[in-house]
């Protein structure tokens, strides 16, 4: 992470430092996007899925999270 930035400027090579700052930003944006997508999938699985997400699970996912759905106010059959 950030440790690279000060060490790079101290040795007088600004280009790698600049590149790493931009790289860190891009990497962080990708990580943020990935984390948000994973979190949405998790929420979909427990709150919305009725067996469509992984067809092999049938109603198992739904029934396992059944009480949580009711409690947190998600629609249930």
């Amino acid at each position: 992470m950030s440790p690279q930035t000060p060490s790079a400027t101290a040795t007088g090579t600004p280009t790698p430092a600049a590149a790493s700052a931009a790289t860190i930003r891009t990497r962080d944006a990708l990580i943020a996007l990935g984390a948000a997508i994973l979190a949405l999938i998790a929420l979909y699985a427990v709150f919305v899925d009725n067996g469509q997400l992984v067809s092999a699970t049938g109603g198992y996912l739904h029934e396992f999270s059944h009480d949580g759905r009711h409690l947190f106010g998600a629609p249930c059959h």
Partner: peptide, 25 residues
């Protein structure tokens, strides 16, 4: 599919999954 006991356990697991996802956002 599941006994009530398993669904009780499922409630806690569901709450943890929801907590992790909400924590990310």
């Amino acid at each position: 599919l599941f006994s009530r006991g398993t669904q009780h356990f499922g409630l806690v697991v569901t709450a943890v999954v929801v907590g992790l996802a909400v924590g990310v956002f």
